[in-house]
C-alpha cells in the first residue's frame, strides 16, 4: 500500500481530486456513469447460430456490429465486442429497461439482451501519459500502431476483470465490475500518480 491511499478505505471509490506532483496532469480519469449522468448498458448475446443475422439486423437498424474485439457506434448506441457473438452496448440519456427494449426491437429475437446498467463503473482515461500509467497493469499491447482507435479488449488488470476500448486517439473507456471499482481505482491512482493524476466523478469520499 502506498501513503497515497493509506487513508482511503479499500471498499470505497478513490475520491475525486488530484494525486501526485502538483502542477502536472499526465493522466486524467472521469467516471462516465455517475448518478448525475447515468449511462445505460446491456449485454447483447447472439442466439445459437444467429450471429450473422443479428449483425445484419442491427446494421439495418443503424448499429453496425463487428464480431471482433472492436467498438462501433450508431443509432445513439456504442457497442463493444466482448466475445464471439457478444457485445456490451452503452447508451447515454436512456434507462436500462429502455435500452433493453430498444435492442430487442433491433435484434428481432436473434439475441438475448440483459440489462447491465448497474453492473459497471464506466471510466474514461486519457492524458499524455495515460499509456505509461496503464502499462503498469494492462497486459495488452497499447502501442497506437497495434491497439488502434476502436480496438477493444476484455482482460484482467491488477486482478480485476475489465473491458476497455479506445474511443478515439486519446481516450480509453474502461468498464469495471461495480464491486471491483474501488480496487481498480486504487491501482490506477498509484500507477498514474507519478505523472500527476486528475480523477473526477467518483464523489468526495
Amino acid at each position: 500500500m502506498s501513503d497515497l491511499l493509506e487513508h482511503i478505505a479499500p471498499t470505497r471509490l478513490v475520491p475525486e481530486g488530484h494525486y501526485g506532483p502538483e502542477g502536472a496532469t499526465g493522466v486524467s480519469a472521469r467516471a462516465a456513469n455517475t448518478s448525475a449522468s447515468p449511462l445505460a448498458a446491456a449485454t447483447l448475446v447472439a442466439r445459437k447460430g444467429a450471429t450473422g443475422r443479428l449483425i445484419v439486423a442491427c446494421a439495418a437498424a443503424g448499429l453496425p456490429l463487428a464480431d471482433a474485439p472492436r467498438s462501433s457506434g450508431g443509432a445513439g448506441l456504442e457497442a463493444v465486442g466482448t466475445g464471439p457473438g457478444r457485445w456490451l452496448v452503452l447508451a447515454e440519456g436512456m434507462s436500462g429497461p429502455d435500452l433493453v427494449a430498444r435492442l430487442a426491437g433491433m435484434a428481432q429475437g436473434l439475441a438475448a439482451i440483459t440489462d447491465q446498467s448497474d453492473a459497471h463503473l464506466i471510466l474514461d482515461i486519457c492524458g499524455e501519459r495515460a499509456r505509461a500509467a496503464l502499462e503498469k497493469g494492462v497486459t495488452v499491447d497499447l502501442e497506437p500502431t497495434v491497439f488502434r482507435a476502436g480496438d477493444a479488449a476484455t482482460t484482467v488488470v491488477s486482478h480485476v476483470g475489465v473491458t476497455f476500448w479506445q474511443r478515439d486517439g486519446a481516450t480509453y473507456r474502461f468498464a469495471v465490475g461495480r464491486s471491483f471499482a474501488p480496487a481498480f481505482l486504487r491501482w490506477l491512482t498509484v500507477s498514474a500518480a507519478e505523472f500527476g493524476f486528475a480523477l473526477a466523478g467518483t464523489g468526495r469520499g
Binding site: 471482433a68 474485439p69 466475445g83 497486459t139 495488452v140 479488449a153 476484455t154 482482460t155 484482467v156
Partner: peptide, 11 residues
Amino acid sequence: PYCGARSSHEF
C-alpha cells in the same frame, strides 16, 4: 482466436 495473444494468467 477472438482476443489475440494473451498471458496464460487469463486462462
